[in-house]
Simulated scan of single mutants.
Amino acid sequence: MKVLIAIDSFKESISSIKGSEAISKGIKEVYQDSEIVTLPLADGGEGTVDSLVHATEGQLIKMKVTGPLNEKLEAIYGILGDDKTAVIEVASACGLPLIPEKYRNPLLTTTYGVGELISDALDKGCNNFVIGLGGSATNDAGVGMLRALGFHFMDRHNNEVGFGGKVLEDIHKINTEYVNPRLEGCVFNVACDVNNLLYGTEGAAYIFGPQKGASEDMVKELDTGLKHFAHVVLRDLGQDIHNIKGAGAAGGLGAAFYGFLNANLQSGIELILDHIGMKAHMQGADFVITGEGKMDGQTSMGKAPLGVAQMAKKNNIPVIALAGGVTDETSELNELGVTSYFSITSAPMSLEEAMTWKTTYNNLQSTSKQLFRLIRASR
């Protein structure tokens, strides 16, 4: 028997790698000689680096970068097994969890560290990039990242502007003379699962600014800055960075990658499944197991388990989905490729207890064992 395990992390509980290990142990207790392939998943957000590095037998790179409040911190990115592809989660360098809540202020936060990660990967010979957007604490339209890559943004007095969303209104001219020459010919594939434009009531500032610490007045200031910046980019570079689906992702990083680095913005799960070779690994599988911490209506809107299930359905492979919790909306997944789904919660307990690493691990192992006992009996 061949079983493919492709689960997302159970957020704040267990990583996709350790969760896959638990499921594998449960199956092996029933089918000792089974062939088990584990492909830890992510959808472009948290866990993307680990997922792709694990699947391609790549390596993790740790380095000091400039954090969102201009402080030094350690960030991690991955170089895949081909030695030419770097995978970066922007949250590693400018993520919201890096800043205590009382210090969150998108007028000040910068994406400079993301550019430092890209520069380091360029120095190591990478020319292909997979970028996971999401979870940023910034609203600087990627200006910080671009500065780290050699772009210069000048004010009316021909002085370079500072950092953070507050400087966008001050930008008068863009100088591309000193851009890192290694960027030429590079390919950037960006995992982006939001459709927000750069500015306006559905743009980066209005939709995502408040969760990053922006007051009502800050939101208006940030939005004005984004609109001004888009006009300067259109004038100086001939690039429309506003009317692009996903431009407003990660505080405008989507716009920066598209307009300055010619990036492809695409569905996160489709990008990840392609890079880990999911289709090839699925060949010959008798069962596919997928899952995440909570399965609900959001799961059916393009999250990782759905992508796996839809691919398996095309190959007529039964799909078992496991989750810490399921809702009534989860039944929609039965029409989209999930054969059966199960909650792994084994007894009444508090949410805090259920989400501990040890409890989740044991429940995944136990549930998998019982499911495959049933499968063996039915055969």
Score class of each variant (00 low, 15 high):
A137F: 01
N158T: 10
G162I: 08
L108M: 14
V87P: 06
L149G: 00
N159E: 15
L117R: 00
A86L: 04
E71K: 09
N159I: 11
V90K: 02
I118N: 03
C94M: 13
P100N: 11
V130H: 04
E116L: 07
H172Q: 14
L108P: 00
A86K: 00
N128T: 13
G142S: 09
V130T: 12
T56E: 11
V114N: 01
N159V: 12
Y77K: 03
P100I: 10
G162Y: 07
I79T: 06
A91T: 05
R104L: 08
A91R: 01
R156D: 14
T109P: 00
G165T: 13
V87G: 04
G162W: 10
I99H: 06
E74Q: 10
G67C: 06
K124M: 14
E71A: 06
H152W: 05
I61Q: 03
F153T: 02
G162N: 12
L73A: 10
L80R: 04
N70F: 12
V161A: 09
A121T: 01
T56K: 12
G164F: 03
E160H: 11
I79E: 05
P97D: 10
S119Y: 07
C94Y: 04
G58N: 10
I131L: 12
K124Y: 11
I171C: 05
I76T: 15
E57F: 12
G78T: 10
F153D: 02
G144M: 06
T109G: 02
M63V: 07
M154C: 08
D155N: 15
A75R: 00
I118V: 14
L80M: 15
D123S: 14
L98S: 05
K62D: 11
F129L: 08
N158Y: 10
M63Y: 03
C94W: 05
V90A: 01
D170E: 15
G132W: 04
P97A: 11
Q59R: 15
G67D: 02
D83C: 09
L80D: 01
